[in-house]
């Protein structure tokens, strides 16, 4: 709710990559005189290298344990070279009837896609109205939307649970999609983006041309919103995919999403970490793949999000 009070940071283009190339003359100058512009020195790469290792180590550790067997973890002279059992352990995870890996994967994909799609649609529509259309009540309504960002999910879980269990929807992925079909953050984000990226004159011109509201929205709003919508969709997808609290409460253990299935891997009485961590990697794989292809967009999405702060 307080986010509105924070003055947005000024730029619309976050990146300096276009501006980056410095005049040749500065190239040779002493590094300490300028904080940017000069090619970064050795120690910056070392620092970043350390950060990268820290970011990747848990992945490696999972693979290390996940490719061993149940005794690997207790072996005092454990090798830092992965063993050869990863596929076998992964197969154990996939075939564990208590974990329901394939169902979990299917549920995660379906629910995250549905949530992302519906958040994008509702947010784009509302964002367009808040950003570019003048109507009585728009200011207080937008403030209201932003204020709801402070409302914790916990505030709704009890009645939603009662409601869904009364309707017999618990255990259905609908129960995790429906509460997430809108996002106050999404509306706020699209509003900010559209405000900055569509000049008012453009809409005026369209209206002078006699274009209807829906036509203006479609030809100007949607077109302009596309990059932001893609990022919002991506971001929502990742968030929905990783969500645990509500799915854990409302889904049946026989029909889980991936994070819920992961929690089952651990709560099974036989804690064999080679299998648990193989499962962890397995469940992270789809998002890692997504990250390889869309990571760039996610990065720029987060950076743009910061700018609209």
């Amino acid at each position: 709710m307080t986010a509105l009070e924070t003055p947005p940071i000024s730029t619309t283009e976050a990146s300096d990559s276009e501006r980056m190339p410095q005049p040749r003359a500065t190239r040779g100058r002493n590094r300490t005189t300028k904080i940017r512009g000069v090619r970064a020195g050795f120690w910056v790469y070392v620092g970043l290298g350390v950060v990268l290792v820290g970011a990747l180590f848990p992945f490696y550790w999972s693979f290390l344990i996940g490719s061993g067997d149940s005794s690997t973890i207790n072996d005092p002279n454990m090798s830092w070279i992965p063993g050869g059992n990863f596929l076998e352990n992964a197969a154990t995870v996939v075939n564990d009837p208590a974990v329901n890996f394939w169902r979990a994967l299917g549920n995660s994909i379906t629910s995250s896609l549905l949530i992302a799609a519906s958040v994008v649609v509702t947010s784009t529509l509302a964002g367009w109205a808040f950003a570019k259309l003048r109507f009585p009540g728009s200011k207080p309504l937008l403030v209201f939307v932003v204020a709801t960002m402070a409302v914790p999910m916990q505030l709704g879980v009890v009645p939603l649970y009662i409601l869904f269990s009364d309707l017999g929807w618990t255990g259905n992925i609908g129960a995790i999609v429906i509460p997430a079909v809108t996002s106050a953050f999404g509306v706020f984000w699209m509003t900010q983006y559209l405000q900055q990226s569509v000049p008012d004159e453009l809409i005026e011109a369209a209206r002078v041309d006699g274009a209807s509201m829906i036509r203006t929205f479609w030809t100007i709003g949607v077109v302009a919103a596309r990059p932001a919508a893609a990022m919002l969709g991506l971001f929502t997808f990742v968030t929905a995919w990783n969500n645990f609290f509500w799915p854990f409460i409302v889904l049946d253990r026989s029909d889980p999403t991936l994070p819920v299935a992961l929690s089952l891997l651990q709560s099974n009485h036989f804690v064999d970490y080679s299998i648990v961590l193989a499962g962890v990697l397995l469940s992270t794989l789809p998002l890692l793949l997504l990250f390889v292809f869309a990571g760039k967009q996610l990065v720029s999405g987060i950076m743009q999000g910061a700018v609209k702060g």
Partner: peptide, 22 residues
């Protein structure tokens, strides 16, 4: 035959649905 992983999971499910559907 549906098998839950642990009895705690089964417990949650049981009281959630007892007297209702499912």
């Amino acid at each position: 035959h549906n098998r839950a992983a642990t009895s705690n999971d089964a417990r949650a499910n049981y009281f959630q649905k007892l007297g209702k559907e499912g």
